Amino acid sequence: MIVRIMGEGQLTLADDRLAELNKLDDELLAEMENGDGPGFRATLQALLAKVRDLGEPLPEDSLEPSDLILPSPDATLEEVQELLSDDGLIPGGT
């Protein structure tokens, strides 16, 4: 799977790693619903750090279609809400 972090670039990520990301995605959704700005910010940073840790960066000159697009680290709560699906940011969540 190709994952794009807006403003940073693309990474390849094994599909079987999505389950590890879903827990953070679920936390992020709960914090957004509760209006927990500091919690949202911390969980977004943790989610992106986990993607960077589990993924392998594609070369900068490579441009592949992204299977998953995640917000930039400095995205606002409103910007993240625009990217949400029914599953959250990561497919297969609650």
Rank of each mutant, 00 (worst) to 15 (best):
A42H: 00
A42C: 01
A42F: 00
A42R: 05
A42K: 05
T43I: 05
T43L: 07
T43F: 02
T43W: 02
L44S: 00
L44E: 00
L44A: 01
Q45A: 13
Q45H: 06
Q45F: 04
A46V: 01
A46Y: 00
A46M: 02
A46F: 00
L47T: 02
L47R: 05
L47A: 07
L47Q: 03
L47C: 08
L48Q: 03
L48I: 04
L48V: 03
L48P: 02
L48E: 03
A49S: 07
A49C: 09
A49W: 05
A49Y: 03
K50M: 09
K50D: 02
K50E: 06
K50L: 12
K50N: 04
K50S: 06
V51N: 02
V51H: 00
V51T: 01
V51Q: 02
R52N: 09
R52F: 06
R52Y: 04
R52M: 09
D53L: 15
D53I: 11
D53P: 07
D53S: 14
L54Y: 00
L54D: 00
L54M: 03
L54A: 03
L54C: 03
L54F: 01
G55L: 12
G55M: 05
G55Y: 01
G55I: 02
E56Y: 05
E56P: 05
E56W: 07
E56L: 14
E56K: 14
E56S: 15
E56C: 12
P57V: 07
P57D: 06
P57F: 04
P57L: 13
P57A: 07
P57K: 11
L58G: 01
L58R: 06
L58A: 03
P59V: 08
P59D: 08
E60W: 06
E60R: 15
D61P: 05
D61C: 06
D61A: 07
S62K: 15
S62T: 15
S62E: 14
S62Q: 13
L63M: 12
L63D: 11
L63W: 08
L63K: 09
L63C: 08
L63Q: 11
E64G: 10
E64N: 13
E64W: 15
E64R: 14
P65T: 08
P65L: 12
P65S: 13
S66E: 10
S66D: 15
S66W: 08
S66L: 12
S66I: 10
S66M: 13
S66A: 15
D67H: 12
D67K: 11
D67P: 08
L68K: 07
I69F: 05
I69K: 12
L70G: 00
L70Q: 00
L70H: 01
L70W: 00
L70F: 01
L70M: 03
L70T: 00
L70K: 04
P71S: 10
P71Y: 08
P71K: 10
P71R: 11
P71I: 06
S72E: 11
S72Y: 05
S72C: 09
S72N: 08
P73Y: 09
P73A: 13
P73E: 14
P73W: 09
P73T: 09
D74C: 10
D74Q: 14
D74R: 14
A75V: 04
A75E: 04
A75R: 03
A75S: 09
A75I: 04
A75C: 10
T76Y: 09
T76E: 11
T76I: 09
T76F: 09
T76M: 08
L77C: 07
L77Y: 05
L77E: 06
L77I: 10
L77T: 05
L77K: 13
L77W: 04
E78N: 14
E78H: 14
